[in-house]
Design a protein around this nucleic acid. Structure first.
Lengths: 341, 341
DNA sequence: AACGCGGTCGTAAACGTTTACGACGCTACA
DNA sequence: TGTAGCGTCGTAAACGTTTACGACCGCGTT
């Protein structure tokens, strides 16, 4: 005898009553519920997830799909650890668990997602690293799986998303540099079709226009989102005949490679090239000179993601009357020395 | 009509035959199998995981438990992304999926693990950040869940584990520094009870003894495993009246904070303090001066982890006749400039 | 002709839950 | 006293698979 049956036998009551007691239903006496909970704790009973999933068609878990391979991410990985923590803080309120689903580098993200959907491993999904056109969004809407995207996209439809304020970051970066007298400001853009690059570029262009500065395509530097990409960025900048005097970045670890490239050339951030980095992180905090960059609370972002997801899950939506959230997440500028201000 | 039943109805055969055809059993004609597979692909049929789990008591998935909170990890997070990729490469051979299980910072790891075990979400587990005495090991052995630990531990029993060569890293670090004439060599040790610290310390002590150098407890610096810990380490070293001339690290991001502390004091790694870092990673590769540290292939490590796990899972053990693996993973020294050699 | 056997397939039970439904006892009220 | 209503509980079906078991057919052998 196993599972709930054993528990019921031990207490001399029916399995139905045990189940109701455990699930907090009303039609069970306080005394019985007390006995059941006590016995369950004492015997270390945990409901078999396969059984409940099969019966009620839900898994009590949500997934967070991440893509392996840093140059695809657009985010370093300390990033996800922080976000996970926030997501779980919200999920815990509903006894939901979080499973991270790492898509292998050699597998197509859509195919991977489809497999996971088929497995019915989770009731809802958070997807990240949204591409300009992202087939996963169509997949999820078609399969009617609740989801929220971390990163907006050009794929049409009114699905929920949260995105970092790439537009605002570019705008404020340009503002700050222009106010310091810079007129030739370069922008680093990811070399793949991740959507954030387009948003960032648009913000950059708009800011230039507002300041009456010309847009020079040669100042848009396409590099992979990685430390190596930053190194390459430095190389490219130094090789230009008409060098920019400043650069704004859109991936948090670019600054690291850029710093090294400058160091090898005997140059220094802030003095020889003004740099405005992207996200403040443990690494950036210990770079020298200190990087000017933008701060956000990963935990809060994670919580917001979870809340948006729950808002689109029928079983939890009433607790989160948010509608389908489409929100730009603000970031706070943290002045450093790398921009020479 | 849903699932396998719909498929069976469509083909005018019984659900039993459909199941057997899909699972590659022998007692089904080639013709029937062809028709089933074709129809399944055409109708986009994917078996319901809850159903199979319930029936056959297994989930066709393995878990990788990670702990959020960088100062607990003992590993930065680029670390796990790389390892995941290797793990999945092996798992894919058996149609097994990998789910990452992030333990929230505010939850006890053992309690979290117990919940996950109870959920029967996975058939096997990889646990990381093994502590000196790790209750999870007892939990898993008692529950008879196949697992492998990334990191050895002092918990008795002959469970499988893989561990980085902290002993060898300490030993070779000391060797190298002694050969350069250093006699006062400090060692950074994590401030929590993660087991790798003890292994590292033992290797450090043994190496000193072999070189006839005295062991000075004041040279054992306890700092959190984080960039900030490295910063604090630098502070502590600079504040000593009888400073060490060299230091060996045991966490990959310590060097970053240490570099910054030195820079603020107008000092430089390699010239004013010899530093031997731990794991080569994208960040270390772009530090200046270049960090002397140790290289390992995360992918290979992940593959070895997966193979050890499969070797301890009855259903797959015959394909991996390894016994219970207990293995130290070698690391290759990559010379840089930070040790002044 | 009787029999055995291998190949192929259908039947039905089982996995561990949840939950609709009905039964039962009790109180309160007409 | 009859009955309505409520609180509590047991019964059994259902979720979608897998698989043991047996049935059936066709063939070859004795």
């Amino acid at each position: 005898m196993k599972g709930i049956r054993r528990l019921a036998q031990e207490l001399n009551i029916s399995i139905g009553t045990v189940s109701r007691a455990l699930n907090g239903r009303a039609d069970v006496s306080d005394e019985t519920r007390r006995r059941v909970l006590e016995a369950a704790a004492q015997m270390g009973y945990v409901p078999n997830q396969a059984g409940r999933s099969l019966r009620q068609g839900s898994t009590n878990a949500v997934g967070f799909m991440i893509e392996l391979g840093a140059d695809i991410n657009g985010n370093s990985d300390t990033f996800f650890m922080g976000v996970f923590d926030g997501v779980q803080a919200v999920l815990a309120r509903h006894h939901l668990d979080l499973v991270a689903l790492p898509c292998p580098t050699d597998e197509n993200p859509s195919a991977y997602l489809q497999r996971m959907i088929g497995r019915r491993l989770v009731d809802g999904l958070i997807i990240s690293a949204t591409h300009r056109k992202d087939a996963r969004i169509d997949l999820l809407t078609k399969a009617r799986i609740p989801f929220v995207a971390l990163g907006r996209s050009m794929t049409p439809g009114d699905y929920p998303w949260l995105d970092l304020d790439f537009d605002g970051v570019a705008r404020r970066g340009v503002d700050r540099l222009v106010s310091a007298g810079h007129t030739r400001i370069a922008a680093a853009i990811p070399s793949n079709d991740i959507n954030l690059g387009f948003v960032f570029l648009d913000g950059y262009k708009a800011a230039l226009k507002r300041h009456g500065l010309p847009f020079d395509p040669s100042l848009v530097m396409r590099v992979p989102s990685s430390e190596l990409g930053g190194y390459q960025l430095g190389h490219d900048i130094l090789a230009m005949k008409n060098r920019p005097t400043a650069v704004i970045l859109n991936y948090e670890l670019l600054a690291l490679g850029l710093y090294r490239q400058l160091a090898e050339a005997g140059l220094q951030a802030g003095r020889d090239l003004a740099i405005i980095g992207f996200r403040e992180n443990p690494v950036s905090r210990f770079m020298s000179p200190r990087l000017t960059c933008f701060r956000l609370s990963l935990r809060d972002l994670g919580m917001a993601l979870a809340e948006s997801l729950l808002a689109s899950m029928p079983a939890y939506a009433d607790a989160y009357p948010l509608g389908t959230v489409q929100r730009v997440w603000p970031m706070e500028l943290i002045p450093g020395e790398s921009d020479g201000l």
